[in-house]
């Protein structure tokens, strides 16, 4: 019984983990290239969720069509924010970018609240279920996981095969060296920031498959915390480390939820969220450079 539930959760965990991983790649990309911590991360995820809501509920379109749209929205937001603030703060004390990204998150939340209001919304994209004996998975979640893997692979190819991608990698390795070798480092910064935000907003589309009624301007806070747990699992500056960190985290989250549910008198949902915070502290304590090594 427990075993069955656990193995069912294993599958659920991997599926959710893939999406979590993709949702953290943008955060790690931005930190890797610019050494900027996007504390407003969750708010950008939230924007993606609202783009999806708009596509599905207002236009009646397949939510997957929202992915490129959300990506584009993210690129534009990223560029705007980069040129309005981040670019001017790259040489300022760390405090400045931390507070600026944090404030940007608040700004987005408040903007969305003014447009859509602050009640919880959601939509249900019903495309059937698959029965996997130990658990039943909605197709929409499977599509979301596959979409995440596809985006991660696309990013991988882009890094390896395009000039822009290799310029970005060279900046991650050694920004000074890259500048000396004629890489347009400032351009790479702008592009990476925009790409990172684009990926983050796009990930919001995929996450909506898991939260049928959880779309709200303030939904991002929880994702910011999760994303940081995942990012430090993967070493903070590697998008691929983040992807695998997401898988691991999805598993931890699902398993611990199942196990906590067996303890009488506790609320498994809350304890699971407390656990993710604890994991964050523990990783930072023992290995701030990350547990998972991925290039």
């Amino acid at each position: 019984m427990l075993l069955e539930q656990l193995s069912g959760n294993l599958i659920q965990g991997v599926v959710l983990g893939a999406v979590y991983g993709m949702a953290t790649m943008g955060l790690s990309l931005i930190f890797g290239v610019l050494k900027v911590v996007n504390v407003g991360h969750g708010a950008f995820v939230m924007v993606g969720a609202f783009v999806t809501l708009f596509f599905f509920s207002s236009l009646g379109l397949n939510p997957f069509i929202a992915i490129p749209a959300a990506f584009l929205v993210g690129i534009l937001l990223g560029l705007a924010f980069y040129y309005a603030a981040i670019k001017k703060l790259l040489n300022a004390p760390e405090l400045a970018t931390l507070l600026a990204t944090f404030s940007a998150g608040v700004l987005l939340e408040e903007t969305v609240k003014m447009i859509f209001g602050s009640e919880y919304r959601g939509f249900n994209w019903d495309v059937g279920k698959v029965d996997l004996i130990v658990t039943a998975l909605p197709m929409s979640k499977i599509f979301a996981a596959l979409g995440s893997v596809a985006i991660a692979l696309l990013l991988y190819v882009w890094f390896k095969r395009t000039r822009a991608g290799s310029a970005m990698r060279s900046v991650v390795e050694d920004s000074h060296g890259a500048r000396v070798c004629g890489v347009n480092v400032d351009g790479v910064y702008a592009m990476s920031f925009a790409l990172g935000i684009g990926l983050t907003v796009a990930s919001g589309v995929l996450l909506t498959m898991f939260i049928p009624v959880g779309i709200n301007p303030y939904m991002g806070g929880g994702y910011t915390l999760k994303a940081f747990v995942i990012a430090v699992l993967g070493g903070l500056s590697s998008p691929y480390g983040a992807f695998f960190g997401g898988l691991v985290f999805g598993l931890i989250e699902n398993t611990s939820y199942t196990l906590f549910a067996f303890i009488p008198g506790v609320e498994p949902f809350s304890l699971t969220r407390f656990l993710s915070f604890l994991i964050l502290l523990i990783i930072l304590l023992i290995r701030p450079t990350g547990i998972i090594k991925a290039k």
């Binding site: 930190f31 050494k35 506790v266 915070f277 604890l278 964050l280």
Partner: peptide, 23 residues
């Protein structure tokens, strides 16, 4: 700095969920 900020992001939520979760 940056790692410190990351570590603190969950403190309030973490504590809240500990109180709620562990009753």
């Amino acid at each position: 700095g940056a790692y410190f900020a990351i570590a603190t992001i969950g403190v309030n939520e973490g504590f809240r969920f500990l109180i709620e979760g562990a009753n």
